[in-house]
């Protein structure tokens, strides 16, 4: 196996960082209705949907959902979100950013100081006849993504972001975020040096066959995804890498705790039990 670093960890990381205790998700019906007022709704309707993992509130054509484990939030215009229309999306990046910032500003959920523009993604449509003679491609929306920062440190992982979807008319038709609120500083931890972590990463991938390329190597606070409960926001190193082994390639991730004291596991058990596989005989 060979390892190539297309991206490397930053040379400098802080000597220490605070670890934060996170607030519990705000996902009751009352809280979801109250949340809707941040999006300009009345919050007074009684159209809720409750499932084992989400609390949903609908008012007119807008649906707001809050995840019970993470507090992850979604807002969509159920008629317009993701729909291809006659008009193509043609707003500039500056216009998209302005619209998204205005929208987020109205919600008063995230301070400008705590988020930075990460990238603008696009929902794209393609179509073609069988021979490829009438091929079309167009943009449907912009998804403007902001990453979260805590104490000037970026938040890594599947959480710690918000995305605002803007349609060709410049209307916000979707929004999602995974952004757990901090409750208090729990402790301060010393940070494991970069060299030591690179060594740990290379040991973790030492059994991989093929040519390994590190495509992202980052340091920051680590926020989990939508499905997961998280009690502490603590620092981590993240490596995203691809492996080419003959004609087969794949992509994987390693997350290594950066604090010399760790408060919670950064990786849990598998979420779904596959059950016992009895040996199957070919027919």
């Amino acid at each position: 196996m060979t390892i190539r670093y297309a991206k490397e960890l930053p040379n400098q990381v802080p000597a220490s960082l605070a670890v934060y205790r996170l607030a519990p998700p705000q996902s009751t019906m009352t809280q979801a209705a109250a949340m809707s007022q941040r999006f300009g709704l009345s919050g007074k309707m009684r159209e809720f949907t409750i499932s084992d993992d989400w609390t949903g509130y609908q008012e007119g054509r807008i649906r707001i959902s809050v995840h019970r484990n993470s507090g992850a939030l979604r807002y969509i215009n159920i008629d317009k979100y993701g729909m291809e229309r006659e008009k193509e999306f043609r707003l500039s990046e500056q216009e998209s950013e302005q619209i998204s910032r205005d929208f987020l500003g109205r919600t008063r959920m995230y301070s400008d100081k705590l988020m930075r523009l990460h990238k603008i993604t696009y929902l794209r449509s393609g179509s073609s006849d069988l021979e490829g003679k009438e091929k079309t491609e167009k943009l449907i929306d912009a998804g403007v993504i902001y990453r979260r920062f805590v104490d000037e440190t970026p938040v890594e992982g599947p959480g710690g972001y918000t995305m605002v979807n803007i349609d060709p008319e410049g209307e916000v038709v979707g929004f999602r975020s995974i952004w757990r609120q901090t409750l208090r500083r729990e402790a301060k931890v010393k940070i494991i040096p970069v060299g030591q972590v690179v060594e740990a990463f290379e040991k973790l991938v030492s059994n991989v066959e093929g040519d390994l390329t590190v495509t992202a190597a980052n340091f920051g606070y680590f926020e989990q995804g939508e499905l997961d409960r998280q009690l502490y926001l603590e620092p981590a190193y993240v490596f995203i890498y691809t492996v080419q082994n003959g004609e087969v390639a794949h992509k994987s991730i390693e997350v290594i705790a950066a604090g010399q004291r760790v408060f919670a596991k950064l990786q849990g058990k598998k979420r779904f039990d596959p059950g016992k596989q009895e040996e199957r005989k070919p027919a």
Partner: peptide, 18 residues
């Protein structure tokens, strides 16, 4: 392109199935 095989993104298909 490539898709991640990892714990942190492993819940994607549960959400999709739901």
């Amino acid at each position: 392109d490539l898709v991640s095989d990892s714990w942190w993104t492993g819940g994607r298909c549960y959400n999709n199935g739901r």
